[in-house]
Nucleic acid binder design. Sequence first.
DNA 1: GCGTTGCGAAACTTGAGCGTATCGAAATCA
DNA 2: TGATTTCGATACGCTCAAGTTTCGCAACGC
Lengths: 207, 207
Amino acid sequence: MKTQQTAEGVARPAGRPRSEKAERSIIEATLELLGEGIGVSELSIESIASRAGVGKTTIYRRWSNKEDLVVDALATLKPPIPLPQGGTVRDDLVTYLRVIQEESRHHRTRCIMNIAMSDSERHPRLAERFRELAVEPRRAVVAAVLRRGMETGELRADLDVDMALALLSGAVIWLTKWSHPGDSHADLPERIVDEALRGFRPRPSEP
Amino acid sequence: MKTQQTAEGVARPAGRPRSEKAERSIIEATLELLGEGIGVSELSIESIASRAGVGKTTIYRRWSNKEDLVVDALATLKPPIPLPQGGTVRDDLVTYLRVIQEESRHHRTRCIMNIAMSDSERHPRLAERFRELAVEPRRAVVAAVLRRGMETGELRADLDVDMALALLSGAVIWLTKWSHPGDSHADLPERIVDEALRGFRPRPSEP
DNA sequence: GCGTTGCGAAACTTGAGCGTATCGAAATCA
DNA sequence: TGATTTCGATACGCTCAAGTTTCGCAACGC
């Protein structure tokens, strides 16, 4: 493969350049299909090509296997909406759980759960990638809110941040996954946060 | 198909009776494969037959499709170990979370998460069956413990049981799924329960 | 214009799994 | 013993998707 020299001095292959548009629509189609509940193992190159309006050749030219493609697709997932750090810890937590809850309804981010939960054992690379991109950033934001609360005295100074995170995040996932279809979830974030902040034991002042 | 009359008067088909052993090993093979992380859609009758040491005919003679077979396989999952209702609520909860945590390491019960989480949208029948068999019984046990605590005064009388359940169960799932591989989880149940019971806010007596 | 490379479409081979059929052997009852 | 049914094994035709190749056209630099 001969290369050509651009004005900027960047080496560049001869011939027709690869279409960025095709590349984007391949990624997009992959995320769409995953978002519709298709698992990684059932995801077929043909379906991606057809959905993207692209030849299979165009895909194989860029990615040698399906997993590489999915990794790149996951890499385009956007970081979470930053939290408005204005109010009380309680309000910030509610706001954030609400964002997570809302995201879990959205097609695009629904692939989170599908891939993360079911394919984590067969595709450890994907799971790890996903952790980095989707789980950790959110963890970090909530952890920051909790630590702020510990400093201001709104939360216990000896709070176990890891456990607190697990309680909050786990509850949202659990409820959105397992509650009965008809149930309303409008006030879930408030209820979760309030129970978590308050604790299960009675206070001395409420015998 | 002619039938024969047994001594008990129960109608019974002529010819060689179906082998219960074959039936058991088919179910067993199905659960094994699911427990290894194979999704329902990738689960093939051929692989089940091969694993069970059985002809495909023997499977098709009993189940007309894959989903029916999986439903029957799920039906053999054992109900949860009953909780030793002896100690304090705190201890009972720790014991129970420990059981769940231990189960989630076990091959057999690991298919719980895989099927439940990933196939719930494409196979609603399975998801519902699974809810009945695996989720609800456990929910019920923990709910009973919580309610006992509310009566004895060990827990708040106005505790939101649904949220409490979600916080506890969600945390266990979350942690076993998403914590780093190397982490030790030996004391997770205690930490989860203690944080949940105590709550995140400082008590009046601990400013 | 020419060489090179990418493009989408289609044809192709290969392999997996489906559901059915057939086989000889085994189990059961009359 | 004979009738009946199941057993495991194997073969068959079918569909679907994988991954490769070919084709004619398009886009780029020279």
